Simulated scan of single mutants.
Amino acid sequence: MLEGIHHVAIICSDYPRSRQFYSEILGLKIIDENYRKERRSYKCDLALPDGSQIELFSFENAPTRPSRPEAQGLRHLAFRVQDIANAIEHLSAQGVECEEVRIDPYTQKRFTFFADPDGLPLELYELPAN
């Protein structure tokens, strides 16, 4: 029945800052961007290379959502990368700090965490090309 994830929606506290982070720092392609006057809200659709998308929204006075300590709900968003060292180097050059690389005890794959401008936990999960 389910065939994959189409998109993940994120409400930003500072839309221009998040738009720049996801498009320029993470390199996601902007495929559509609209200002919805009736809602005084921006919506930006960003594409990942596999076709999945991230939607960024701005809403006035949106309440904050705790992500730490481990709050109920969405825990983090993980991005697949082929070379975690190169991805970390790219993020570091942009001023984005990553946690120490860890090894998943079940899959033996390498991963690390970093945060978006609102503190949303993001993960890099290394899956080298075969």
Rank of each mutant, 00 (worst) to 15 (best):
Y15K: 06
R17E: 13
S18G: 05
S18D: 11
F21V: 12
F21R: 07
F21S: 05
Y22H: 13
Y22I: 07
S23Y: 01
S23R: 14
S23A: 12
I25E: 02
L26R: 02
G27T: 10
I30W: 08
I30T: 14
I31C: 04
I31N: 13
D32M: 08
D32Y: 02
E33L: 05
N34A: 04
N34C: 00
Y35W: 06
Y35K: 09
R36T: 04
K37F: 08
K37W: 01
K37I: 07
R39T: 00
S41C: 09
Y42R: 12
Y42A: 03
K43W: 01
D45V: 01
A47T: 06
L48Q: 01
L48C: 06
L48F: 01
L48P: 03
P49A: 04
P49D: 11
P49H: 03
D50K: 00
G51Q: 10
G51N: 05
G51S: 05
S52Q: 11
S52E: 13
I54N: 07
E55Q: 09
E55I: 14
L56C: 03
L56I: 02
F57E: 09
F59Y: 12
N61E: 15
P63N: 10
T64A: 08
P66A: 10
S67G: 07
R68Y: 11
R68E: 14
P69V: 09
P69C: 13
E70P: 03
Q72K: 08
Q72D: 00
Q72A: 11
Q72E: 09
G73L: 05
G73M: 07
G73C: 12
G73P: 07
G73I: 15
H76V: 13
